[in-house]
Structure formats: structure tokens, C-alpha cells
């Protein structure tokens, strides 16, 4: 499912009107996955990733809990459960499973989750390469790390650098949790940007370690 910009608008409405069931053409409560009358699978509702997992938007999530919900929902909606059903239901199940995969990808990853929360609150993190250069302090930090990586001569030096970065990421996560809890979105946006940099760096260093190891 490609995320649609309208997904959040429905949220404010207390009782959205029923939709017509594609199969029996009677009313289906808005957002219901199955028609209460004929039990046909409806297309997935356009809702945010948290709501899809029946969670309220928050940075602090237990990965195990997200996984538990993901598996339970996939058990219900995965195309393998609809192999013998009508073509339309099969299509809807693919759409549901796709939406679940996409939601899981975001909710299970602290960086994507933080960025998504910022986006939901109308404060997207700078995404493009050009914008990321904004914070000079961050730039210096990133440059210093790159230099260290360039100078790292053996696998263990790269591993040490990786461990250091992972620890920094751990700290960022703690700080993000605090920022979101206190509603300080500006701080959260800054932290998410720094997180993104660190993530990129970890990828680079991992590649490097593989090259050296080879």
C-alpha cells in the first residue's frame, strides 16, 4: 500500500458513515475488515501504521508486542488464507498483507518510527541529501567519524568504531523517547536526523568491515 495523505483525516470523525460492501453491496462499518453481513474481506482502511496495529502513536513500543500483533494480523489477512476465495478477496488480502508489512517495517524500526511520528505530527525530518547538511555540529561529528573509518586499518578497528556508533545510537534512542514523551518535537527532529546519519555510517562501516574481512 502506498501511504496516502488522506489517511489521517478520517481520524477526527467520531462515526464515519458506513461504506458499501463490494460483495453484498450492503453497509459495512467504516474501517471494518470484514462485512458483518456476508463476511467478505474488504479493502484495507486508509489508517496510519499505529492504528493498523491497534496501537496509539508513541515512540516507546515493545518490539515483541509489535511482532506479536504483526503475526496475529498476518495470520488473519495473508494471501495464503484466501487462496480459494474470489479474485477480489484475494486482491484485498494482498493489499492487507502489503499494508501490514509496510506498517511493521516502520513500527519495528526505531529510526523509521521516529521519522513517521514526526511526519504524523506534521513535522517531517529533512529527508533529502541537500537538507541534511543544515546542522554544522552534526556535520562535524559525521566528518570525524568518516575520518576515523578511513584510518581504521584492520577489522578490529572497524569493529570498535561500529561498537562506539551503536552505543551512540542507543543513547539517541533514549533521548528520542524523552523528547517524544515531553512533546519536544524540535528536539526529536534533531535527534532523528542524527540517528539517520549514524545509521548511514553504520552501513558504510559494515561494508568496510566486510571488505577488510574478505
Amino acid at each position: 500500500m502506498v501511504e496516502s495523505g488522506t489517511s489521517l483525516e478520517a481520524k477526527g470523525v467520531a462515526h464515519p458513515l458506513p461504506q458499501a460492501c463490494w460483495s453484498c453491496r450492503g453497509p459495512v462499518a467504516s474501517g471494518a475488515a470484514f462485512c458483518a453481513t456476508c463476511r467478505a474481506l474488504q479493502p484495507p482502511a486508509e489508517i496510519d501504521h499505529f492504528r493498523r496495529f491497534d496501537l496509539s502513536p508513541a515512540f516507546d513500543l515493545q518490539r515483541a508486542e509489535v511482532e506479536r500483533r504483526y503475526f496475529a494480523l498476518q495470520r488473519q489477512f495473508h494471501p495464503d488464507r484466501f487462496a480459494g476465495k474470489s479474485a477480489t478477496e484475494r486482491l484485498h488480502s494482498v493489499q492487507h498483507a502489503t499494508a501490514l508489512n509496510q506498517a511493521f517495517g516502520v513500527l519495528a524500526d526505531p529510526l523509521l518510527r521516529a521519522e513517521y511520528l514526526l511526519q504524523l505530527s506534521g513535522r517531517p525530518v529533512a529527508g533529502g541529501e541537500a537538507e541534511t547538511v543544515a546542522d554544522p555540529e552534526l556535520l562535524l561529528e559525521a566528518m570525524a567519524l568518516r575520518e576515523e573509518l578511513a584510518e581504521a586499518e584492520d577489522a578490529s578497528a572497524v569493529a570498535a568504531l561500529l561498537a562506539k556508533t551503536e552505543a551512540m545510537i542507543g543513547e539517541i534512542e533514549v533521548a528520542l523517547s524523552g523528547a517524544f514523551a515531553s512533546g519536544d518535537l524540535a528536539a526529536a527532529a534533531g535527534l532523528a536526523l542524527r540517528f539517520r546519519y549514524m545509521r548511514k555510517f553504520v552501513e558504510e562501516a559494515t561494508r568496510r568491515r566486510r571488505q577488510i574481512g574478505a
Binding site: G31, A33, F34, R51, R81
Partner: peptide, 10 residues
Amino acid sequence: MQLLEISEPG
């Protein structure tokens, strides 16, 4: 979520 109240697809 309503979907959890509905009988299992199985």
C-alpha cells in the same frame, strides 16, 4: 479494531 471481533477466516 473491529477486525479482531470477526470470526477467524479459517
